[in-house]
Amino acid sequence: MQNPEVIIIGAGTNGLAAAVALSKAGMDTLVLEKRAVSGGLSAYHRFGTKYRIPGFRPYPDGSTDMLNKALGITFPQPTSANSTGLWNGDSFDIETLPELADAGKALKTLLSIPLKRASLRNKMAWLPTLLQTQTKDLARWIPLSCVDLLSEFDLCEKQYSALTAPLYTRTFAGPKSPFGALQMLLHANRNNSNGHAVLIQKLEAAARSNGAVIQTGAPVKQICRNSSGVHVLMQDKTPIYARFILATCSPAMLRNHLLNPVLISRWPPVRSRGTCAVLALAMDQLPGWLTSSPACCKID
């Protein structure tokens, strides 16, 4: 095969999305995936003989829109407004706190402004948001813990824990740890949907149709540069040269395995501390409390 223009390492959601975008733009794209299947963390995980754990639940909102617009991929619309907690049989979500939801939206808009001169100069994009929103609330809320944040609203304790648990559990922090509110604001409104796997399939199909090559079972061993340019070395030491290399694996993987550490001065310290595990149960039927709940979600 001729040398591609761009090599994407990893066929996870991000790798595939990039593949779609770049191949659509006419670049000669090669995706190298270590595992036998594409999808990365969003891939179906098989267990037993018949069961698969679907991709994980929620997607931060906006991303579906983004994918739609940028890549022309239609993503399944939210199947239901999933509830975060149950209280006295009623479901509620953070969205029941409109101030939080507003602040969350504003925060995300602000964060999505790329820190480039051009976009900063284009005040139309961010100034109105900045002025409209409660900068005041944001500044005060962000450093708070989840519990401190919620204590500003009229909620009872069970509601607190229902609201905060899914958020802080993903980080190495507790419900009373400062800055938990930041997580909470970022997730303050979302469209839930099921099945990343669907997305993976769609992305993969779109990439291939644009001419991208996706190779699974092709672990990259190292990223190198010599006088002939940048290239990746595969397990068997064969080099593949390209103009660009786009790595989607974790920064730790990049630094510790793929890159020669001497080449990197001042690698940004990124922490990775796993804090959760998954327990999947294969059941012959849904438990009663789940089917009878008004907030029952549709199972993919």
Partner: peptide, 13 residues
């Protein structure tokens, strides 16, 4: 002395 109670937020906006 937490970030939300410092600078222009001490004691309040």
């Amino acid at each position: 002395l937490s970030l939300n109670q410092l600078l222009f937020q001490r004691p309040a906006w």
